[in-house]
């Protein structure tokens, strides 16, 4: 197996769940659509492997590809546009308790109320990425991100706790 293939497989396994959660956030928690997005992301990662110049971290590079690929797919492919909470509710998630799953549905619904840029910022923050890395992925200044993030986090918690936002 080539060194590139080995490195790719490691990146895939290390970031599988992180990228999957990002994709889930964009498609309202629809697991099948998120899986399609995830596969599209990793195909692009493989195709653009040589474009990594080492200026940023490999994870920043990966997240940039993931965000841009997911959003481009959402814009251009109609199958992602019809995502609604109704379609997700039909999916059976065995591993999660009902209560937890309800909380995720509420989270997805609240995330979906934001515009795509704020959704991206929030999804990356939920993953626990450092703010400097989120700023580099989005392409805004760190200070601007910090202010915006406070507002988005407060919006999300109010929404999840069923307060008016």
């Amino acid at each position: 197996m080539s060194i590139q293939k080995q490195a790719f497989e490691k990146l895939y396994r290390d970031h599988y769940n992180k990228v999957n959660r990002l994709c889930l956030g964009y498609v309202n928690g629809n697991a099948a659509l998120a899986q399609d997005l995830l596969q599209e992301v990793f195909i692009k990662v493989w195709q653009h492997w040589d474009s990594f110049e080492g200026k940023a971290q490999r994870s920043t590079w990966l997240y940039r590809i993931a965000v841009n690929t997911c959003l481009q797919q959402l814009r251009s492919d109609n199958k992602y546009k019809a995502t609604s909470l109704e379609t997700i509710k039909k999916e059976v998630v065995v591993e999660q308790s009902v209560q937890k799953e309800e909380m995720y549905q509420q989270l997805y619904a609240c995330i979906n109320r934001l515009n795509k840029e704020n959704q991206t910022i929030l999804l990356l923050e939920l993953e626990g990425l450092p703010q400097s890395e989120i700023a580099a992925i989005i392409g805004i200044k760190h200070n601007a991100l910090r202010t915006r993030l406070n507002r988005i986090k407060s919006q999300l918690t109010k929404c999840v706790n069923n307060e008016n936002i």
Partner: peptide, 8 residues
């Protein structure tokens, strides 16, 4: 694809 979201 590996540029920032804003640039892309």
């Amino acid at each position: 694809l590996d540029h920032s979201y804003h640039d892309h």
